[in-house]
Simulated scan of single mutants.
Amino acid sequence: MFRPFLAVLFCLAMPAHAEVAGKVRVIDGDTFAIGETRVRLHGIDTPESTQMCGARGVSPWPCGAWVSDKVRSVYDGADARCAEVDIDRYGRVVAKCFVGGEDVGQHLVAEGLALAYAKYSQDYLTDESSARDAGRGLHGMAFERPARFRAVQRDARAKTAALGQEVPEGCRIKGNISSSGGTMIYHVPGQRDYDATVISEARGERWFCSEDEARKAGWRRARR
């Protein structure tokens, strides 16, 4: 006879999913600030703001900054309503956000500015497939999937940590000194030998945050 009462108590104890509403300030392609709340858009993934993309035979380009600028041009200052789905390990609210009744995540994936983050949601897989078939946004260019970019960064940090080094945040250009002749060459993400290149600070090798910085320090770009 106490079961209905206990059920009510159980429901009251369950945390309610919050709603965040207000004007958007775009942090990067998949992260907004609404007031004091950081919101990570649910079910999508975009290039990191410092990410450079490219492929063999294609010059690296700042895909992360490009996407962030595109998203900012559409949503910065817009009124959004966001329904909380989760809280991530960084303390951000993970949410589905809507502007003018439109699902922001779906719009970004459909326009090729974001990818469906299948690890966490299957909601936008069809939208990504359509954008890819049409060559919209990122799909019309050479780019590295953000998850792959982050994995390479983690691997690079692990390798340099084993050598007692630290990779500067956002600095992924590898300044390598050839063993034959001592030529100073830098490698950017997407080039043939990038992943295989390990930086040895003991030999004078180093990380760079931009190609301009590398050139000014006397390094030249690897040909492949």
Rank of each mutant, 00 (worst) to 15 (best):
A110L: 06
R132K: 11
K23Y: 05
A134P: 08
R136N: 11
I173C: 06
V24H: 00
R40D: 13
R192W: 14
T183N: 08
H107D: 15
M52P: 02
L138C: 02
V198Y: 09
S59G: 01
G182E: 10
G135V: 12
V58Y: 11
G164H: 10
A214P: 12
A7I: 11
L125W: 00
Y117D: 12
K174F: 07
W61F: 05
C209A: 10
V94P: 08
S73P: 08
D123G: 02
Q51W: 10
M14D: 00
A65N: 03
E111V: 03
G175V: 08
R25W: 02
A33M: 10
A16F: 02
Y117I: 03
L163A: 15
C82I: 05
H107A: 15
A156G: 13
D45G: 04
R172F: 15
D127H: 15
S129E: 15
S210E: 11
A55M: 04
V198A: 12
C11V: 11
F98W: 04
Y186E: 14
H139V: 00
V109P: 06
E19Q: 07
G54N: 10
D193V: 07
A158T: 15
V58L: 06
R92N: 03
F149R: 01
D212E: 15
A151K: 06
I177A: 00
E201M: 14
A142V: 10
I34V: 14
E48S: 08
V93Q: 08
Y186D: 10
S210M: 13
E213C: 09
F98R: 02
A55I: 03
R40K: 03
E19T: 09
A118W: 04
A21T: 15
G137K: 03
T197M: 12
V39Y: 06
D28A: 08
E36A: 13
G91K: 02
P60I: 11
P189Q: 11
W219P: 09
E211T: 12
W219L: 14
D212H: 05
I44T: 05
R92I: 09
R221P: 04
I44K: 01
R154I: 04
V20Q: 10
P47T: 07
D212R: 07
M141T: 10
G22Y: 07
L125T: 13
E144F: 05
V67L: 06
M141R: 14
A33G: 00
I185L: 14
Y186A: 05
G135W: 13
E19C: 00
I34N: 06
L125P: 00
R150Y: 06
A151P: 01
F98Q: 04
C53M: 12
V26E: 11
A114M: 01
S73L: 04
H187Q: 12
R132M: 09
A151E: 15
D76G: 09
F143H: 00
G77A: 05
C53G: 07
D79H: 06
V39R: 02
V26H: 04
D212K: 06
G100Q: 05
R132D: 12
G204R: 05
G135L: 11
R136A: 13
T183L: 09
G182M: 08
K23E: 15
R172T: 11
G170I: 10
F10N: 07
W207S: 03
Y120N: 12
M14W: 03
L12S: 07
